[in-house]
Amino acid sequence: MGQPVLKDAGAGAAVVALPGKPSEVVPLPVGPAKPFLAKLAPLARGALANLLPPLITVALILLFWQLAAHGPQSSLPPPTKIWEEAKDLIVQPFYWAGSQDIGLGWRILVSLQRVAIGFSLAAVVGILLGVLVGQSVWAMRGLDPIFQVLRTVPPLAWLPLSLAAFRDSQPSAIFVIFITAIWPVIINTAVGIRNIPQDYRNVAQVLRLNQIEFFYRIMVPAAAPYIFTGLRIGVGLSWLAIVAAEMLTGGVGIGFFIWDAWNSSRLSDIIVALVYIGVVGFLLDRLVALIGHVVTRGTATN
């Protein structure tokens, strides 16, 4: 059995000359201007194919909405009325005319700042706890049931307790973000750590990597795809929670703006704020996904 055919090749020393050098002979002469334009055309076509359908959908929704809400007895404003009433909010996100009369962009930034602090804390603590639970069977047995119970508690249910503990709205809102975003980070990190192939652990053992080296050389990169899935869910949840928390705590954020607008019956403002929140939430999700894509490059393929 074996390789009767191969033995022919095995005779000479030439066998050793494996791929290597010769493969470098492919400097394709790329012309300067013309191929660039030629490349642009399919790109533009691709963008069009991706952008056109949602634009059409949005136009149809606006049209339907206009038709449904244009009557005088309608309880919600139609798009044209929103444009009339809240034009300043739409076209000028960053105007500043006094402490409570500011553009939605500023409010979003204030909310984003709270999310940034709460979510960063959740990410750091969540990854560390996830590593602990993923690494140690005893930690998992002890902590996992608690996590499973606590993660079902709705974000706002934490608010009264945190207000009582911190006696201030700012840290309370941040705590609510933290406690909302941390569960998916913990759980996904733990799953990622548990799924590290035994081979990588063997490599680490043979190299005698210490705990710290193992953590950042093997564990974090190997679990990175899972960790980023958790972070992505977490950032979405924190954005959900911040709006609700700010409605109750007040201050400058986008959530309080909605509550304030409701109290003074500015429905148009509320609808504009909803669009802002949706777009920012979408961008946050994409941002974390993009970072994850860059960081975990190469991890998925083995």
Partner: peptide, 27 residues
């Protein structure tokens, strides 16, 4: 285990997030 008894694993066990160079460099 220790580097005085290096192992070449059946499924290579290279770390996929490191380049070829960095895999050897780690060791």
């Amino acid at each position: 285990p220790g580097p005085d008894r290096a192992v070449v694993f059946q499924n290579h066990s290279l770390l996929p997030w490191l380049t070829v160079y960095d895999n050897v460099a780690l060791a």
